[in-house]
Design a protein around this nucleic acid. Sequence first.
DNA 1: CATAGCCTGATTGTCGGACACTACGACTGT
DNA 2: ACAGTCGTAGTGTCCGACAATCAGGCTATG
Lengths: 248, 248
Amino acid sequence: MSLHAEPLKVNYAYQQIADRIQEQILEGSLKPGEKLPGEMELAQMFGVTRSTVREGLRQLEQDGFVFRPSPRRLEVRLPAADQLSSRAGRAMALMKVTFRELWQVTMETEPLAAKLAVQRATEAEIAELQCIHDRLVAAKGDLDRTVQLDTQFHSAIAEYGKNRVLNLAREPIALLLFQGLTQIVQPVPQSYARQITAHGNILNAIRDRDADLASFWARKHIQDFWRGVCIAGLEDAPAIKNPKSLTT
Amino acid sequence: MSLHAEPLKVNYAYQQIADRIQEQILEGSLKPGEKLPGEMELAQMFGVTRSTVREGLRQLEQDGFVFRPSPRRLEVRLPAADQLSSRAGRAMALMKVTFRELWQVTMETEPLAAKLAVQRATEAEIAELQCIHDRLVAAKGDLDRTVQLDTQFHSAIAEYGKNRVLNLAREPIALLLFQGLTQIVQPVPQSYARQITAHGNILNAIRDRDADLASFWARKHIQDFWRGVCIAGLEDAPAIKNPKSLTT
DNA sequence: CATAGCCTGATTGTCGGACACTACGACTGT
DNA sequence: ACAGTCGTAGTGTCCGACAATCAGGCTATG
């Protein structure tokens, strides 16, 4: 027969404390930005020692439920997206995911982001996009700055599409892929110009509110990126050489 | 001008300990499965107190770098994908992401997963898929079981596509969306039959190694899902009512 | 009145020591 | 070889303490 052997987890005190506080945050009785009592007071409230409270807090801190700008301030906070992004990025880095894997997914996410941006971006946001693009043009030749602005441009488009799920999923992937540019642009110098025109096309399509066109150019842009990877012969190379570089 | 004001983080002892150990894990000198020294020994090695080591370990534990099956065993481990999935899922739940957001992304991920599966799935894996599908057919009428098998079917396709990036990104999204089925199927009972035929179409296309067709049916399947959401009038409803249900 | 600088108390990071309880590994007997 | 027993090391939790340092209020100054 099937004996249901439940995991039977022992609840340690520090675990319970973390759970209780997290519960109250999720439930809403503790609102983000609010200041939490000090460790001693918490210890008194829960009837445990400061050490125990401490371990519980470490856990919440790591989960992003509390924020510690300075040792004295202890604020409630909801886990932000970038927390996950960096974690996911780290995970992918140490899985040694290849450019091919990143590219295959990006090939879908970026066109979608562009399409959504066409529908949802405000005029002000489009102006912001133009600004980023102008800076990219100005940075022509500067590798690091180009990579940074490229990433920013794509992130902005995704953000303006106002789909939080897409943003959550896309961020770490795009980061890794575009960061990989650092290994690409060198062998293919004319990329600078190609990238600028590609971004220009996407930007114009968004401004004209032409969803299909924006999606088309985004796709084309990522495809072009792939050509660069192929020329460099890095299709199945890990997108990051040593995972150590992501030290929180 | 742009003054680069870095956050200038003070390195506390427990932080340094966590960093040092993590470093050695990433670098490879500590291999997964290996047993770590006890807290007292570690304390001696790093020249700090056990309390300090403890806080550092809590952090690694939370990050998934060490695993504690029992209080006595302390193993090295690499963060697994499902760790992130659940975390991402929690985050999305408490952001109250809508069905629309989930659907828009799934509309891209599932067809891609199907396409990749066509290219990369082995015969054995296709047989496995068939098995899952058979069980779905048998479960007709049982809501919970249907949801579970539906999720499993899609997960399997994604897995057989062998793109780790896609899997990482897709998993929590699909989970939330298909879980949402629970709220949908009730209003639209004939979904059972439609879902079975849809899955059958996808399965056949994969077996015939027809990438475009597999992608087409996957898309159609997700589109069909959306119709159900619309009928229920849940387009912009949060996909999960209370985030509390995800208590690790 | 608003602002800048100073001061003090409270709180944190870290330390050392202590105790009950439990699981791991060795020992024993069959 | 196996099952049962047992000692011990190691963990979870507690207590108390100390220096460093930051928050918030106080003061002085314009």
